[in-house]
């Protein structure tokens, strides 16, 4: 709007004068110096929450990529974990296979070479796994071992008794030491026994069953002297009741007939 003497001056024209109120050039020199100092001060001394606010702003702006990256990372970690688990599993399976398939009492009575070489912790693990996984074949092996013997024990009792295998081993020891007459009375003739027991022994794939009885006894004695004794898994009451000496003393050596009495 261009006012002249003939034209009215409006409110807008007067306010236009306010627009013309401008500072001198020196003002801007000082203004620039001050604002630069304040800017440097702001850069140097940022508040502690500034980084947090920046982080939240960044996350808010990149929600989708961050979420996808997190999901990818979780997937990768999961795959890595599974791969590690699968690599570690064969060792466990190997231990389970190497451990005796018999139930725990048999395993503790005759420690296998694997048990002697393994630490106590591994033995416990192996026994625990053997109890859980292959219980059925182990029971079958033990029951077949006993049922084939002439001693008339019910198969279910033999299978359920925790020290049944111990009895079988003790009888085998006694058979080596007792006179031939007694052995014949108890077990029948050697020929009969051997013909009945040989197939069973051959079919047994248990490495513990293939160990020589003398070696078993030596291992048993050594086992009691070892500090890390797997027998700790069995209660003392059962161990005392099933001791070899008690069974041996219960036999009547004077008579022609072998009388056994096991007291519990």
């Amino acid at each position: 709007m261009k006012p002249d003497s003939d034209q009215k001056i409006t409110l807008e024209d007067l306010l236009r004068l306010k627009r013309a109120e401008r500072p001198a050039p020196e003002f801007w020199v000082k203004f620039d110096a001050d604002i630069r100092a304040k800017q440097l001060s702001a850069i140097v001394s940022r508040p502690w929450w500034d980084g947090l606010a920046r982080g939240f702003t960044f996350m808010g702006r990149h929600q989708m990529p961050l979420g996808a990256a997190a999901a990818l990372a979780l997937t990768w970690v999961g795959v890595q974990h599974m791969a590690t688990h699968q690599v570690a599993s064969p060792h466990i399976v190997k231990l389970s296979v190497a451990a005796p398939p018999a139930p725990a009492p048999a395993a503790e009575r005759v420690p296998s070479p694997v048990q002697l070489e393994m630490g106590p912790r591994l033995v416990v693990d192996a026994v625990a796994r053997a109890e859980v996984a292959p219980a059925k074949p182990a029971m079958a092996a033990v029951s077949s071992h006993l049922v084939k013997a002439p001693v008339s024990l019910p198969p279910d009792v033999a299978a359920q008794s925790p020290f049944s295998d111990g009895l079988a081993v003790t009888f085998a020891d006694y058979r080596d030491q007792a006179p031939a007459a007694v052995r014949t009375a108890v077990f029948g003739s050697d020929g009969d026994f051997e013909t009945m027991a040989a197939p069973v022994r051959q079919t047994i794939s248990d490495p513990l069953a293939q160990v020589d009885p003398a070696q078993e006894r030596r291992a048993r004695l050594l086992d009691s002297a070892l500090p890390a004794n797997p027998r700790a898994m069995v209660s003392d009451w059962i161990r005392s009741r099933s001791a070899d000496d008690r069974i041996y003393e219960s036999l009547d050596h004077t008579s022609d007939h072998l009388l056994t009495g096991i007291r519990f």
Binding site: P3, D4, R16, L17, E21
Partner: peptide, 22 residues
């Protein structure tokens, strides 16, 4: 604390001229 009116702006100069003349 007011700044001086810069009369470089032609419109402002003409307004001032018109008012002072009257």
């Amino acid at each position: 604390s007011l700044e001086a009116i810069r009369e470089e702006d032609p419109v402002s100069k003409e307004v001032i001229d018109a008012l002072t003349d009257k």
